[in-house]
Design a protein around this nucleic acid. Structure first.
Length: 361
DNA sequence: AAGGGCCTCAACCGCGATTCC
DNA sequence: CGGAATCGCGGTTGAGGCCCT
């Protein structure tokens, strides 16, 4: 645990609060080009007046192209309940098992909906008499994790598995057998999720969900090619000209001067442990459509999808002269969709997508 | 129609874990 | 090996929207 923690963005006068479409676009464009090998250096490189943490959060929770949007399905909710039963508040682990959902989203859904629902149903079960021993201890009543699990948070991390098993709560300390044992006890009716409990187990123990169908491939997994849009063809992102004092302040405080250059130097950003995607590489056009449409709606850019579908023959993706003029990089990007936008960004018309990013960056 | 309360969710904060040098 | 830098996680907050009275 480092002692020299960098100051929060608030302390150096960076932007906070809601993201503007332009900021989103900058972030997307940058990550599409260079990945996110260094979150701390990223905002400077991308010309964003945000701290790296904020950028990371925005990308992971909102801009990532492989995100699902909209309400949780019943299946997802059931899965979430089960996983929470097993893992407690390990939102990132749970998120790994719910393709397209973020830990933040899951946390919100749990806290706002499912917790109450589960508590209510648990209460009803109690009233109606605990049916069967297996439920009384395993229903979602988060219990403090007694075990000194190395990965557990010291704050209020809870787990629900402790009552059911040996007391070893950490997901990493649980053997598959133990988890299997847990799963056997879970009473929630198993829905047809397209995967079975073994898959879930695999998921839980490996913190990712290779077995779950339709899970978006993680473009940035260590097994995947590095998130370089076009290997060897990285553009030099122009230096941004925003309040240089700010960056020097940040560099000075964080001693990140050396890091500041890393993004550009990284020919293969997002390599190694990167688990967040750059842009989805899956050829899922339907997925792109909803992703695009939803994101456009979010950013107030949405128009009938047909409008640009007709124009898509243009390989650059920046096409529709009416609703997606190249003067509007945000619109252009979202109309192009994640994968398409990738090529759009790197193509000759990259300047269109990055129009608002100073080209001398 | 207006006001107030409730709910949702994006974003922030702080800290532990991990990696780098 | 130890310290620094960075990442990632989980808890919390607050603005905005929705619903009820």
């Amino acid at each position: 645990m480092g002692k020299g923690r960098a100051p929060c963005c608030a302390k150096v006068g960076l932007n906070r609060g809601s993201w503007t479409p332009e900021e989103d676009m900058r972030l997307i464009a940058y990550i599409q080009k260079f990945g996110h090998a260094n979150w701390r250096a990223l905002p400077k490189q991308a010309g964003l007046l945000r701290c790296g943490k904020s950028c990371r959060l925005r990308w992971i929770n909102y801009l990532r192209p492989d995100l699902k949007r909209g309400n949780f399905t019943v299946e997802e909710e059931e899965t979430l309940i089960k996983l929470h039963n097993m893992l407690g508040n390990k939102w990132s682990k749970i998120a790994a098992c719910l393709p397209g959902r973020t830990d933040n989203e899951i946390k919100n859904v749990w806290n706002t909906h499912l917790k109450k629902r589960v508590a209510a149903s648990a209460g009803e079960q109690k009233k109606g008499g605990a049916k069967g021993k297996k439920k009384t201890t395993c229903v979602d009543v988060p219990a403090p994790a007694p075990s000194p699990s190395p990965s557990s948070s010291t704050t209020t991390t809870t787990t629900t598995t402790t009552n059911c098993s040996s007391g070893e709560s950490g997901e990493q300390s649980n053997s598959s057998k133990e988890l299997e044992f847990e799963l056997d006890k879970i009473e929630i009716p198993m829905l047809d999720l397209g995967f079975d409990l073994d898959m879930l187990l695999d998921t839980v123990t490996n913190t990712h969900c290779p077995a779950i169908p339709s899970a978006p491939t993680s473009p940035c997994s260590s097994a995947s090619p590095p998130c370089v849009v076009d290997d060897g063809a990285l553009l030099d992102l122009p230096e941004i000209d925003i309040v240089p004092e700010l960056w020097s302040i940040m560099d000075g405080e964080g001693g990140a001067g050396a890091c500041a250059e890393t993004a550009q130097d990284n020919a293969a950003p997002c390599h190694g442990k990167g688990t967040e995607a750059r842009a989805a590489t899956a050829d899922d056009d339907d997925g792109k459509e909803w992703w695009l449409e939803d994101l456009e709606k979010e950013l107030g850019l949405w128009g009938p999808i047909e409008d640009y579908q007709h124009q898509q023959p243009d390989p650059q993706g920046c096409v529709d002269p009416l609703s997606a003029s190249v003067d509007d990089p945000v619109s252009c990007y979202f109309q192009a969709g994640p994968a398409r936008a990738t090529s759009a960004v790197q193509g000759p018309e990259a300047s269109a997508v990055l129009a608002n990013i100073p080209m001398d960056l």
